[in-house]
Design a protein around this nucleic acid. Structure first.
Lengths: 230, 230
DNA sequence: ATTTAAATGTGATATTTAGCACATCGGGAA
DNA sequence: TTCCCGATGTGCTAAATATCACATTTAAAT
């Protein structure tokens, strides 16, 4: 991990949150801040390892996963530019990463010393308020996805997840999936085969189109109906 | 809704969070604070209605639910003493309750003006930090439950939920369920009949005992195995 | 270009779960 | 007490889903 020599002070990709800090506070943050690029497929941090940093995604996509029974991983979410990873360790005595994080494409990250981040929180109420807002906006929205997934059956969950990628993750309509069908299945909580079959079904009905990794939602209305029906 | 004349200043059931406020800040909070008792079954607030307060649970249990398709409710969680409800509205422009809340037993509540709460956050970083900690501790733990529920099948989810009641909600081993089987099913995301059948199965295997509303977990080890197996 | 491993598609089958129908129980209300 | 309604138990059936086995395709590495 090399420090590129960039500083927080002159960083051009400042987050909304960090923009609230004074120069003095930024300078302090910087002494515990490290920037780096991770390539596609690289492990950023591993579940259960000590968490001394909060990882800010400047650019790219990151898969957050946990190891389940039988060594089978399951995916919690896809984090993107602007996300703070490991922020839930702020209030822990023993800080361990709750998930593993893997770069899905080449990804630029900042590693922020978690102690320093915590000190800034206590000293700057506005900063803390923004952090709270971030938590609600970013974390709680995928919380809603989870709630739906518990209550719905597999077609509804798949519909959810397609909308999730279109709206939350990529924000474009034809979008390029950076994850495999196996991973998609583990995000939905079903089997790979079921995903294959359902996607095929959706395609036959003209609701979506899948070419390689390029997914297009053709009929939002009907996909929405599937989502609602469960 | 009547104000009982108690004040935040002399309140004897102060939360960890509020304990951090100065007398001056407490006095300010108090002008927008109202205390009340809700009886079993009473609706505290309704999904989709304007949310002008954060509701603090001083004592009791509250069911948080959402209306699904076909008018069928589903339950997100059971909140207990010490919980702040509606806190996720802090950063919204239009504040609407995300869920409905219903008292499961007689319950003491404080209604705190959300604007005043927000002002305190910005002015007192320590207070804000505690709020952040609260959010992680309380919200994120039931987030974990949701994650598991997505990945597991029904027996695993039921096991989850039994542990959830024992450890998170009631904190005792024989515990008295304040919800019906129908509600339990809607918490797990399955049908009432499946819950009945599985509970019976667990009883036949000596893993739990159910008498009326009194649930006893007899064999944590085996229940844990079911949970892990999924 | 060749090789190899991983990812994907697909049919057949076994399990799991939902949904329906109906019986029974239990707790209020009159 | 008696009536009544919601909650609960239970068998049966249909539907959904997982799992297995294997073919095929794609991507990565040499």
């Amino acid at each position: 991990m090399e420090n590129r020599g960039e500083t927080c002070l002159n960083c051009t990709i400042k987050s909304n949150i960090v923009a609230l800090l004074t120069e003095k506070e930024l300078a302090r943050l910087e002494t515990g801040c490290l920037q780096n690029v991770f390539q596609k497929g690289e492990l950023i941090f591993k579940e259960g390892m000590p968490a001394n940093h909060i990882v800010y995604i400047r650019e790219g996509f990151v898969k957050l996963s946990k190891r389940g029974i039988g060594g089978k991983d399951y995916i919690l979410s896809i984090a993107k530019k602007g996300a703070y990873l490991g922020i839930n360790n702020l209030n822990k005595k023993t800080r361990l990463y709750y998930t593993s994080a893997t770069a899905l494409i080449d990804t630029q990250l900042c590693f922020i010393d978690i102690e320093k981040f915590g000190i800034l929180l206590k000293e700057n109420g506005k900063f803390a308020t923004e952090v709270i807002y971030y938590i609600f906006d970013d974390e709680m929205n995928y919380f809603e996805r989870l709630v739906n997934n518990v209550q719905q059956q597999v077609p509804g969950r798949l519909a959810n997840t397609l909308f999730y990628f279109k709206n939350q993750v990529y924000g474009t309509n034809p979008f390029n999936m950076n994850i495999t069908k196996v991973e998609l299945a583990s995000l939905i909580g079903t089997s790979r085969e079921s995903v294959t079959r359902l996607l095929k079904e959706f395609q036959e009905e003209g609701i979506i189109r899948v070419e390689k990794n390029k997914y297009t939602i053709l009929d939002e209305k009907r996909l929405g109906a599937i989502q609602k029906k469960g």
